[in-house]
Amino acid sequence: MTRASKAVTDSRANLPFVYRQYSAAQLREVLYKMYLIRRFEEGAEECYTRGLIHGTMHLSIGQEASAMGICMPLAQDDQITSTHRGHGHCIAKGAEVKRMFAEFFGKTTGYCKGRGGSMHIADVGKGNLGANGIVGGGIPIAVGAALSAKMMKTGKVVVSFFGDGANNEGAFHEALNMAAIWKLPVIFVCENNGYGMSTSTARSTAVKNIAERAAAYSMPGVIVNGNIFSEVAEASHQAVARARAGEGPTLIESKTYRHRGHSKSDRNRYRTKEEIEDWMSNRDPITLFESELREFGFIDNKGIEAIRDAVAQEIADGIEFAKASPSPDVRDTGNYVYTEQA
């Protein structure tokens, strides 16, 4: 990322990290993308309710700052592995919403040609190696990608996103240990939204903070407020620098909250309305970022309106694109099981 010019940097000396690090245009782009994630998921939810999308989906509404902050210092070549709650990661890493919608509609123009759907959304071209239907499934894969980067000397770093629930899978522990002993360029990002489905971290996890588990694998464990874009981006920035320098992995715990239920069939019986309401009205990551941008003079109300309008247009166009796209031919059911060879 290009740094803001020296003069501008000085005038921002007392501002939080991202306002010193990035240009106004870049920061407005971040706001655009945070809205894009939110409206994409709202759009997908509405299409689901109207029966245009089938299956189920896991919405990350409320977690946008986490996805954006972590991906901020990543280059296009850097890679991520994502989760069942992966729409935000996918957009943050550079995916086009029209091809994501097309995937959700099961169309050939979708990122997975209609084979994967929401739970397997990916954008390999932009370095997103895929969401995952298996909790914790992507963590060792990220370590493998980091091993490739090291062996092939590509200079890439790899981010593995996962939830608080995933940190109780064996795969998490085995993967962190290997990343540490081989000093691999990988960043483990635990998006702790307080619950794995209905089970709170207090009931599922022996440590209070998941970042504490980093100590067991001799890597830095960092806790950030996942709803504050600047905090997340700063931690990611440091972890990326460490990984690129060959110093090994970092575990970042990004504390956040999902506003929606776990999936489309959640009755929210394990948490209170007040708790949800509190996070929605007082700690919404987009509202928080927007007011900082306004306060520090990076954007005004007109600018925000313009972003919202442009996002709405991109979403509407994306849904139209998906609707107009062709469905796969049922005779092609056997495609992609093995690599086609000439």
Partner: peptide, 16 residues
């Protein structure tokens, strides 16, 4: 079942 993982697309899914 067909010799394939289960696809997401509903028509393909039925066909497998």
């Amino acid at each position: 079942g067909a010799e394939t993982p289960i696809p997401y697309n509903p028509e393909l899914e039925k066909a497998t």
